[in-house]
Design a binder for these strands. Structure first.
Lengths: 114, 114
DNA sequence: CAAATATATGCGTTTGAATGTATATACACC
DNA sequence: GGTGTATATACATTCAAACGCATATATTTG
């Protein structure tokens, strides 16, 4: 676990940018509309997010479309799993969680933005 | 998801303190030996960790024994699960993961400190 | 080429967080 | 009560990171 992952997530604006990118790729201008700082700040945050592996970018005319990359999320998942025994001693509960997610999958198209 | 969780994890020293507490409750002095800052700094970090819900404390004579609390780890787990579709589209893989963990459970007593 | 749009970057400022030193508080033991 | 040990806190300092402003770079359109 590289601590840069948590350091990246610690900033409220970057956190909001990541949330904004959950719905798919977005242009910088769209992201600026979703957070409350200046465009230059958003560009800087996007560069940091890119350096930390959270986002990739794709040119589209004069726009640049940013989207999420899976790696850092995997890292967070693996890290927190090392602490799973703290609250989930029995693997039965893990099976229950599997069932819960299978049910959730059915209504997947409805949740769109939680 | 409260961003205070990630802000707490972002500091390298706090991160190491949390790792040191994986093995169970520890006195402040033991933790000081595990990180490379002054005792006063460790006490401050422990206060922040307590305020963020990561640790609880139990008096034991003149010592104070700190240990991990599950809640913030649950929060991280729930948060990252919202992004799970990024890297794990098919639930079959989740079932595979379940099987992997069940196998891991068998050799649970050996892993001790990963 | 000129103008408009979209994004990135250089620069200086500000602010919050981490740190060490010194000291205070709490407990144990004699 | 006095001494030693363990932990917490007040205070001042330092430093990194976020920010806005201004400007540079790239792309489209006319």
């Amino acid at each position: 676990m590289q601590e840069v992952v948590f350091q990246t997530l610690a900033d409220p604006t970057r956190f909001r940018i990541i949330e904004a990118l959950r719905g798919g790729e977005r242009a910088v201008g769209d992201i600026v509309g979703a957070v409350d700082i200046h465009q230059s700040g958003v560009s800087r945050h996007l560069r940091l997010l890119q350096e930390a592996g959270f986002v990739k970018v794709r040119p589209d005319g004069q726009k640049r479309l940013y989207s999420l990359r899976p790696e850092p999320f995997r890292e967070v998942d693996e890290w927190v799993n090392r602490y799973r025994s703290l609250w989930e001693a029995r693997l039965d509960k893990f099976a229950e969680e599997l069932a819960r997610r299978q049910r959730a999958r059915v209504s997947k198209n409805k949740e769109k933005d939680t």
